[in-house]
Amino acid sequence: MTTNGVATADAAAVPATGDRPGPGFWIGLIVGGAVMAFGVRGVFMDSRGTRPVALAGWIVGADLVHDLVIAPIAVAVGWTIGRLVPRGWRTPITTGLVATGVVLVVAWPALRGYGRAVVPDNPSVQPLAYGTAVAWVLGAVWIGVAIWLVIRWWGARSRR
């Protein structure tokens, strides 16, 4: 199997997953299938709490949001960096952007104060000023990126 650009003509000639399924695949399918069936059974057994239709919607929705929104955005950002950013700067900038994105995802509920809204009388939930906290973390990230860029620039200059 080719390693990138899976949809090449070569790749199409080989099944998408490469090797012929060995015994490992069938054992995994039987064991994993049984475990999945146990989980599905649990969802329906506890259906008053799990709300199977809503839960299935969230799981399939997570797939769709990733494939139709998150991944295309990531690809577009990568493409834009490839167009706009000089070659030597791309990795530090990309790393900075990835870190920024993940930090914002992790901090999002606290940043928006969703937990505090649920328990307004409990000041020990989300006790910090998260706007400031996120600014500190991202500040550190981008200072790191800047230092990395300077080192690269310095290295490139002294090699010349």
Partner: peptide, 22 residues
């Protein structure tokens, strides 16, 4: 409940995936 039972489903799917990719 949703987190717990989805974990079983996901781990089951992970076992299938590991079998296919080992």
């Amino acid at each position: 409940l949703a987190h717990y039972w989805t974990a079983w489903i996901t781990i089951g799917a992970l076992i299938v995936h590991i079998g296919a990719k080992v």
